[in-house]
Simulated scan of single mutants.
Amino acid sequence: MASCLETLCGQAFGAGQYHLLGIYKQRAILVLTLVSVVVAVVWAYTGQILLLFGQDREIAMGAGSYIRWMIPALFVYGPLECHVRFLQTQNIVLPVMASSGVTALSHVLVCWLLVCRFGLGNKGAAMANGISYLANVSILALYIRVSPSCRSTWTGLSKDAFRNILSFMKLAVPSALMVCLEWWSSELLVLLSGLLPNPKLEASVLSICLNTVSLAIMIPFGLGAAISTRVSNELGAGRPEAARLATRVIMVLGLAAGVVLGLLMLSVRNIWGYAYSNEKEVVEYIARMMPLLSVSIIFDNLQCVLSGIVRGCGLQRGLWLGIICGVVVQMLLLLAITIRTNWDKEVGKPKPLPCIHIIPSVGFWAS
Rank of each mutant, 00 (worst) to 15 (best):
L334R: 12
V146W: 12
W343Y: 15
N122S: 13
R248C: 13
A125S: 02
G318Y: 15
P354D: 15
G194N: 06
L206W: 00
L171G: 14
Y24M: 10
I59N: 02
I139P: 07
L188R: 14
G308F: 00
T46C: 08
V268P: 10
F86I: 08
G314H: 04
I71G: 05
W272T: 10
S193M: 02
W43L: 15
T341P: 11
L195M: 09
L215V: 14
S204M: 01
F118D: 02
A15M: 12
P148K: 08
A135P: 09
L189G: 05
L134Y: 09
E279Q: 13
I250Q: 05
L52P: 11
Q17Y: 07
L94K: 11
K200N: 09
I67D: 04
K349P: 11
G308K: 02
L261P: 09
H357K: 05
F168V: 07
T247P: 07
C9G: 05
G101D: 10
N198W: 12
K345W: 14
R68E: 01
Q17H: 08
H19P: 00
V328W: 03
T46H: 04
M169T: 12
L266R: 10
I139S: 15
W183C: 10
L196W: 06
Y77I: 04
E234P: 03
C325H: 06
T89L: 00
R248W: 12
V173W: 07
Q316P: 03
R27W: 03
I337N: 14
L223Y: 05
C304F: 06
